[in-house]
C-alpha cells in the first residue's frame, strides 16, 4: 500500500471500463443499453486522456490542452446523446421495439 499512484493504475481502469463497454455492446440486445455502453466507452477514453494530461505535467502544471479537449468531448457527447435518443424514439415510433435483432432491414 505504500507505492505511489502511477499512470498505469489509471490506464488499467480505463482499459477495463472500455472492455466492459465493448462486451456490453456485443452482448446486449436493447438499443438503449447498447447506447449506455457506448457512453461508458467514451468516458473510459476520457479517463486515459486526463491521466496522460496529469502524467505529462510540465513545470508543475498538468497539460491543460488535454482538459480543454475533454471539455469539448463532453459537450459533443451531450449533443450526441440528445440526437441518439431522439433517433431511438423515432425508431420506436415506427418499429414499436428497442430490440436490435428486430431491426434488420439493412442487414446484408
Amino acid at each position: 500500500m505504500d507505492s505511489a499512484l502511477t499512470l498505469q493504475h489509471f490506464l488499467y481502469v480505463s482499459g477495463a471500463l472500455f472492455a466492459i463497454g465493448l462486451a456490453g455492446v456485443l452482448i446486449r440486445r436493447n438499443i438503449i443499453v447498447i447506447f449506455m455502453c457506448l457512453e461508458m466507452m467514451l468516458s473510459a477514453a476520457n479517463l486515459s486522456l486526463v491521466a496522460f494530461s496529469r502524467y505529462g505535467a510540465e513545470s508543475g502544471l498538468p497539460d491543460y490542452d488535454a482538459q480543454v479537449m475533454l471539455f469539448f468531448i463532453i459537450t459533443v457527447a451531450a449533443a450526441e446523446v440528445a440526437v441518439g435518443l431522439a433517433i431511438i424514439v423515432a425508431l420506436f415510433r415506427t418499429k414499436e421495439t428497442t430490440d436490435v435483432t428486430q431491426i434488420d432491414e439493412m442487414k446484408f
Partner: peptide, 29 residues
Amino acid sequence: LDAYLVGILQILVYAGAIMVLFIFIIMLL
C-alpha cells in the same frame, strides 16, 4: 488526477443531465 473542473463536469453533465435523459426515455418508452 487533480482535474477538478473535469470531475465536476462529469458529475453535472454525465450523471446529471445525460443519465436523466436516458432514464426519461426508458420510462417514456
